[in-house]
């Protein structure tokens, strides 16, 4: 091999998987500009105290953190965030599994049904929020009228305008849109299960319910764990439906950590305080997902 050929080969080596740096650079640059830099900027922002009248920001590292931990509204928001996540996730998981079991068939027409499950997923969440805002309107909303007709709620009752029912109302939109996501993941898991254990169980006289609890669920545990992790992280950051449907109200009945941060940011223009709440949300997401992965031995 001549010297020039060696040189050329060395140059080309940079284009192989042994030298990933050039290939990683564009993605890394984007990550730094749109991910790392804003995060560092937000953390630094939390160290300042903003004077609302003069707009001056003074270095006072503990001010915002003391303020949010002493703020009952933040604790309410944290509680709403956790309740929203746990309840919506439970519904999505149970409904997702049930629907997946129903759709797990090769019979004619089931393919179309499975395809239709994706439809809610492609609607922008803001549009879903608007749809449910109208459907839950006590005066003319189809869902509200249906519930009122059953006698569960008084005539004209505003589901989203009452603190007792607003959060469930928002969850309805969330559950409707994201249950199909669970269905698709569960279906994938169900279709990948080996047939032999089920055949053996049937020969031994196991009922379908026993087979589900003794075989299906244990074998699906990893799939379920991943699905719960993905949806859980999304739910902890819930914002879209709340913003569109209730704007955190009535009162603070649907205020989550992210919507509280949004209100401080857009309403009071207190960027340092809003950044503190946002960073707190990030910490919550990282902590809960890490604990969850440890417990359920999920590896990413």
């Amino acid at each position: 091999m001549t010297a020039s050929e060696v040189q050329k080969k060395d140059r080309l080596n940079w284009l192989t998987s042994e030298h990933p740096l050039p290939w990683l650079l564009p993605a890394s640059a984007l990550m730094i500009v749109f991910g790392v830099y804003p995060l560092i900027a937000a953390v630094l922002k939390t160290l300042y105290r903003k004077n609302a009248a003069t707009r001056r920001e003074i270095f006072d590292p503990l001010y915002n953190w003391t303020k949010i931990f002493e703020d009952p509204r933040m604790w309410d928001a944290l509680w709403h965030t956790l309740a929203y996540t746990l309840i919506a996730l439970t519904f999505q998981l149970v409904l997702g599994m049930l629907i997946a079991l129903l759709l797990d068939s090769d019979r004619k027409g089931y393919g179309i049904l499975r395809a239709m499950m994706t439809l809610p997923l492609v609607i922008p969440p803001a549009v879903t929020g608007m749809m449910f805002l109208l459907m839950l309107n006590g005066s003319f909303g189809v869902i509200a009228r249906l519930i009122i007709a059953t006698g569960l709620l008084p005539v004209g009752y505003s589901i989203l305008g009452n603190s007792a029912t607003a959060l469930p109302g928002v969850m309805l939109a969330e559950i409707w849109q994201w249950t199909p996501f669970m269905v698709l993941i569960m279906l994938a898991g169900l279709r990948a299960l080996p047939k032999e254990p089920f055949e053996a169980a049937a020969i031994d006289g196991a009922t379908p319910v026993q087979a589900f609890f003794k075989l299906t669920l244990p074998m699906m545990s990893k799939v379920i764990a991943i699905a719960v992790l993905i949806r859980g992280v999304d739910l902890l950051r819930a914002f879209d439906y709340i913003k569109v449907m209730t704007d955190s109200g009535p009162g603070t009945a649907t205020e989550t950590l992210t919507s509280y941060a949004g209100r401080i940011y857009f309403g009071n223009s207190d960027y340092p305080l809003a950044s503190s709440v946002a960073i707190l949300t990030l910490v919550l997401v990282i902590l809960t997902s890490t604990i969850f992965m440890r417990i359920f031995k999920v590896k990413l």
Binding site: G111, R114, A115, M117, T118, L184, I185, L187, A188, G189, R191, A192, K222, V223, I226, A227
Partner: peptide
């Protein structure tokens, strides 16, 4: 089973 396959790949 295009969709199932996609979901399978994802999980």
């Amino acid at each position: 089973t295009f969709l199932i396959d996609a979901a399978n790949d994802f999980t």
